[in-house]
């Protein structure tokens, strides 16, 4: 049972265990996957796939897709490290604590991560980068600011999970407002590879999405756990509540991932 902690609550040992497990998964396959499998899925499922469904982004399944994606990564990190207590940490970007420190995700935030954690010499390699470089790129704060606590409060106050036309144009939608105003904005705030299609090259991707998942869980705790929309099973172009999400396979539906206590983790 993983307890996902804030980066502000992590010990140095926990930070080291997390970064080492990420590095191990880069070069080791467990449960039929390695780290680059996750980058492949992110690139592939950003687009509409052959079923004409947008599984991962700009659609209602944005939240449950990433919840399942992170559950698998957490499992793989536990397997590769042999540490059943290993957890994905979350980065509450409204606070002042930064994950970009020498003892965690690396301290360089204005260009190439050329030394320290997550540099090539430390053992981190890029995969499918659309920027021709072997160095992870970050440009923190150069093209966008962080969402404020007031923005988060505003997003969390939306009562409708999602509604037709179920895409990136919906205004009265917790999912779309959260995806655009919180999720997209932090990708742009970090910049560099986080701004790209292959964003999981930067390990901070997971800390960001863990916070997004935590916010969805808080929203569910207030609005209802079983509140995913659409529910009918016949909505064209989107994943309905009981429809499987690719590539996760049979049974991995939005409904199946609605309750995190059944998925084996919690938020501290």
């Amino acid at each position: 049972m993983a307890v996902r902690k804030s980066i502000t609550a992590m010990t140095v040992a926990e930070k080291t265990a997390f970064t080492n497990a990420m590095r191990q998964l880069k070069t080791t396959s467990v449960n039929g996957r390695n780290y680059n499998w996750y980058i492949d899925q992110h690139v592939l499922y950003f687009s509409r796939t052959s079923d004409n469904i947008s599984h991962a982004h700009q659609s209602p399944s944005f939240f449950p897709w990433h919840r399942e994606y992170m559950r698998l990564l957490e499992l793989d990190l536990q397997t590769v490290s042999g540490n059943a207590n290993l957890f994905l940490p979350y980065w509450d970007w409204t606070g002042s604590a930064s994950p970009f420190t020498a003892d965690f995700l690396g301290a360089i935030t204005n260009g190439s991560v050329s030394s320290g954690n997550f540099s090539p010499s430390w053992g981190w390699s890029l995969y499918r980068s659309s920027i021709q470089t072997s160095f992870l790129q970050r440009r923190v704060g150069q093209s966008a600011s962080r969402p404020t606590a007031a923005t988060v409060t505003n997003i969390q106050s939306y009562q409708v999970y999602d509604q037709s036309p179920w895409n990136s144009t919906v205004s009265n939608s917790y999912r779309n407002r959260g995806e655009i105003e919180l999720h997209n904005r932090v990708h742009n705030y970090v910049g560099g590879h986080m701004a790209t299609r292959e964003a999981p090259n930067d390990p901070v991707f997971w800390l960001h999405h863990c916070n997004i998942d935590r916010l969805w869980w808080l929203w569910q705790s207030s609005r209802g756990i079983d509140t995913y929309q659409p529910r009918t099973g016949f909505t064209a172009g989107v994943v309905d509540n009981t429809e499987a999400m690719r590539p996760f396979g049979n049974g991995r539906t939005p409904s199946a991932v609605r309750d995190i206590t059944l998925l084996g983790y919690s938020y501290a």
Binding site: F46, R48, S54, S130, I131, Q132, Q137, R139, Q142, T196
Partner: peptide
């Protein structure tokens, strides 16, 4: 250009994708 910094686009950036 600002995201690229000192680097060039990689070939994969030319791949089409639909939304």
């Amino acid at each position: 250009v600002d995201i690229l910094g000192d680097y060039e686009l990689a070939d994969g950036a030319a791949d089409e994708h639909g939304h």
